[in-house]
Design a protein around this nucleic acid. Structure first.
Lengths: 199, 199
DNA sequence: GTCTATATGGCGATAGAC
DNA sequence: GTCTATCGCCATATAGAC
């Protein structure tokens, strides 16, 4: 609470932008959330676009680095996959709207992606490198590990992104029941991935 | 092309709304797409909100009914699961932005969900009914089939929703390679689900 | 640095001629 | 039914007092 004005703006902007996206967010709403006048937002950040980019870049690189870091070191070691799943599902649970926010913005304005990757110190080529070693599947055929990663992320993110619909039709809008469902997924997803890789 | 003015508006609105969402879409842009003046949009549909709801209700019920119909009759028969996956991945491929569009709107305004479910003739209770029969998992413990459905949808939708990012970091922005990757997923997802249910 | 007041532009919506 | 012109509002952005 004794943080600087700029930090207050940043935190408020992060909250509003993640909830409503670039289009849906209002500068007035961010100013209210930060407890100040909206003129100040323009004093510290020149424009809405600027403020948004500052926030987005930060969120993107934080989440992305976490995925990259864990996967880079652990994806080949099957026994460590479970640790990643536990960590990442907790990370999403603590920031439930972030993955969808990122997905929306990379679709809304894909041009920012390349610069963002670069500025974040993330090098696509190095990440691609971890897929040079292919995974042996059950019947002996080669298995593209990218399918594993995409399946994994899809299984983790979708229950959060589709929550309003899923919670309503499958859980009669019982919030607690859905939370328990989310917690169960750690084990479920773990088993699904491992069973597919191992057997 | 010889369709009525109202149909032209509807088709243009569908295209723009799906691409940009309710907030991002502009009435002017829809009018341009339909090849007419924006005053006509208000003549046929009273407001942007009206036009959007007409489009959204239609898209939602179409996609949802397709999921419901197929799952209701086929999820218990494991050997038919593959048919569903093939059909649904083709459906998404033909409408790649629709799932994310639906997810965005149910999160933006969850209130419309209940009325939409009702007006579409979809009854949540009946859908819940198909989960009364639980699935036996490998080690003999009971397995909540809702996890299967959520995993399945997540694995199918995520590669489309996250395409800009995934295509860039994993495929060096090679569009054709990514299309092939999407096609491979039919088999991959099929195997993942079946292996998890059967074994 | 922080505020109030205002400029500026864009968008949804409407009026009214044809 | 379809168009042009315009209203009224709201959001971003700025000017200027303190």
């Amino acid at each position: 609470m004794d943080s600087s004005t700029e930090e207050k703006i940043y935190e408020a902007a992060r909250k509003i932008f993640v909830l409503k996206g670039m289009e849906g967010a209002r500068m007035q709403e961010i100013a209210d959330e930060a407890g100040m006048n909206k003129a100040l937002l323009h004093y510290y950040f020149r424009s809405k676009e600027n403020l948004f980019k500052a926030v987005f870049k930060d969120i993107f690189s934080k989440f992305f680095t976490r995925v990259k870091g864990t996967l880079l070191s652990e994806i080949t070691a099957k026994e460590k996959l479970g640790i990643f799943i536990d960590n990442y599902i907790d990370l999403i649970a603590a920031n439930p709207y972030v993955p969808q926010f990122i997905i929306n913005e990379i679709n809304r304005d894909p041009k920012v992606l390349k610069s963002l990757m670069f500025e974040s110190g993330i090098e696509p080529q190095k990440i691609l490198g971890m897929f040079l070693h292919e995974v042996e599947s059950a019947n002996g055929t080669k298995l593209d590990p990218r399918h594993i990663v995409v399946s994994l992320l899809g299984m983790l993110i979708f229950p959060f992104a589709g929550r309003p619909l899923l919670q309503m039709i499958y859980f009669n809008d019982d919030v607690e029941a859905y939370n328990q469902f989310l917690n169960e997924r750690k084990t479920i997803v773990k088993n699904m991935i491992l069973k597919f890789i191992e057997a």
